[in-house]
Computed example of a mutant assay.
Amino acid sequence: MYLLLDIGNTREKAALIKSGKVTALPQLAPDNLAKLPIKAVYFASVASQEKVAAIKQQLGLGHLPWRQVYSEAKACGVSNSYQQPQMLGVDRWLAMLGTQLLFPSQNTLIVDAGTAVTIDWLAQDGRHGGGWIIPGLKMQQQAVVKNTARVFNSEMFNGRLEPGADTVTGLQNGCLAAVLGAIRLAWQQTPCNKLVLTGGDSKFLKSYLSDLPIVVEPLLIFHGLARYIDM
């Protein structure tokens, strides 16, 4: 059994892999981990090394091997389109590795709908066709409210694809339309067999994209990260 970690600047996500099966680990607590036969920790991180060291100490797993995974030019049959491969966000890289594993030999559009929305094209032969990065639903709303004197928002997001009759609904519906519009435009750019959706807003967005061959895979990044075990 191995522990898989996706370490961000604000929070950590975790999963376990045992006998080839990846499962989410909702509570990353030292007491829970101490009971598990974990052999090593594989992790991706956009946080500082100081934060990684603090997490290692907090979890009480300093005695285990820790391996950090980075974006590469090529791995597991996937080719990075960046001239400086390490500059591609590691989450995007792992999402492509996960997609190529789960949906081999297909042209796919990969959408990670989180704080930012990343959109990447992956060809059936594993070539990365490049991608887009746009602000996510929450980030768009925060940017408008912060930089506009008379626009305000509510804590609850109730965006719908219809004209808003007040400021809050106008803002929320507009942000939803912007994200969905970018995804649909991306789908039109290059013919694909499947739209693979992951990230915190994926389940919400899915209902607006049901006419496309869509699959929601919340553990997509962890499937990619698991491919580095024993490499």
Rank of each mutant, 00 (worst) to 15 (best):
V179K: 00
S105I: 11
L225V: 13
M96V: 07
G98C: 07
I55E: 13
W187R: 05
A54E: 10
L205F: 05
Q83C: 07
V22W: 08
A44C: 15
Q57K: 03
Q124K: 14
A53T: 00
D6H: 06
L209Q: 06
Q172S: 01
P104R: 02
Q172D: 05
K18Q: 15
A15E: 12
M139H: 14
S19R: 03
V117G: 04
V46C: 07
P37L: 09
L36V: 10
K35D: 02
R184K: 06
R184D: 08
L101V: 08
L94R: 12
L171V: 06
D31Y: 11
G20Y: 14
I183E: 12
S207M: 02
L16D: 12
L122R: 01
N193G: 15
Q83T: 13
L33H: 01
V111Q: 11
V69I: 14
S154M: 05
L36M: 10
I183M: 04
P85H: 03
L109M: 03
I7Y: 00
L88A: 06
A143D: 13
Q188I: 14
Q84I: 15
H128L: 05
P37R: 10
S210K: 01
A29D: 14
I110S: 10
A113V: 02
S154N: 06
A15F: 02
G159I: 01
V117P: 09
S19P: 09
Q49K: 02
L61C: 05
A95G: 14
T10F: 08
T148R: 12
A95M: 11
P85K: 07
K21I: 15
S81M: 11
T167I: 15
K51L: 00
G114V: 09
W132L: 13
F157N: 04
L88P: 13
C175V: 04
I229L: 00
A29S: 12
Q124G: 03
S48I: 08
K21A: 13
G199A: 07
R92E: 11
T169H: 04
K56M: 07
T167L: 12
L28S: 11
T198L: 06
L176Y: 00
L64Y: 03
S202Y: 13
I214E: 06
M156A: 13
L220D: 02
A149W: 03
T99Q: 04
Q68W: 11
L4R: 11
Q189W: 11
T108K: 01
I133M: 10
A149Q: 11
A54F: 01
A14C: 10
K13A: 06
K56V: 05
R227D: 05
N173F: 13
N158P: 12
S45Y: 08
I134E: 00
A24M: 05
N107V: 00
L195A: 02
G136I: 02
V78G: 04
T148C: 14
F152P: 09
V22H: 06
V168Y: 05
L122S: 09
Q83D: 12
Q49V: 05
L88W: 15
L171K: 03
A44Y: 01
K13D: 03
C192H: 15
G8M: 06
